[in-house]
């Protein structure tokens, strides 16, 4: 059972629809019991970092999440769900979960429009099962004004160019995170989620 964490934000329904399509058992929940029992967790994301952290804390989900991830439970963070893993975000200058050391910064918008909205390519930095049956430089769907800067560059497995090259796929032990929305990236996105599920 995969639990999609309900923190009052994000396109929970889209993520659930995708897992249903793949025939994977999942539920949307905010209960500690469900989260602790789950085989894997997904933290989806559409929203602002400030509101996201506020909602996680109000529901006591921040501590539960940190705990479960530390215990080694497979975790997928999507978009804001990736950014919230970091130490801090410039979006509302907020302290985040601090599971991945680093910062979340805003695009400067000097040469390109902000937010980045649309399909952009992901450069696969390493051979990884996450990219099985995904052609090199495939496009995924992005909607973001902020991007992640991990201190430890070795966690970067996918990079995308928008103003700069930034981390669009992160992998660290049991943690997978994407800046793009695999649940909204058509067949390629479905394949990505399928690969993640196979790994866990």
């Amino acid at each position: 059972m995969i639990v999609i964490i309900d923190y009052g934000l994000g396109n929970l329904g889209s993520v659930k629809n995708t897992l249903d399509k793949l025939g994977v058992d999942s539920m949307i929940s905010k209960s500690r019991k469900d989260i602790e029992k789950a085989d894997a967790l997904i933290l989806p994301g559409v929203g602002s970092a400030k509101q996201g952290m506020k909602n996680l804390k109000e529901r006591g989900l921040d501590k539960i999440l940190i705990n479960e991830i530390k215990k080694g439970k497979p975790f997928l963070g999507i978009c804001l769900g990736m950014q919230l893993l970091f130490s801090e975000s410039k979006e509302g200058s907020v302290r985040c979960l601090n599971i991945i050391k680093g910062k979340v910064k805003q695009f400067n918008g000097k040469s390109l429009k902000v937010p980045q909205i649309g399909w952009n390519t992901v450069e696969q930095k390493t051979e990884n099962k996450l990219f099985k049956n995904i052609p090199k430089n495939s496009s995924f769907y992005f909607v973001n004004s902020y991007y992640c800067l991990p201190n430890d560059k070795s966690v970067i497995v996918g990079e995308t160019e928008y103003e700069i090259n930034y981390c669009s796929v992160l992998l660290k032990n049991n943690i997978t995170a994407t800046q793009f929305h695999p649940e909204k990236s058509g067949q390629i996105g479905l394949q990505f989620i399928k690969n993640w599920i196979k790994k866990i």
């Binding site: 889209s14 629809n17 559409v46 929203g47 602002s48 400030k50 509101q51 909205i117 909607v143 004004s145």
Partner: peptide, 28 residues
């Protein structure tokens, strides 16, 4: 199941709606 929401007349009549929605769900 929507990913983005379009506002038109409601936002014109009450521009604060844009700010409230952006603060809550993110401007994107």
């Amino acid at each position: 199941g929507a990913d983005k929401v379009a506002v038109n007349t409601g936002a014109f009549n009450n521009p604060k709606l844009i700010t409230d929605c952006a603060n809550y769900f993110g401007r994107q």
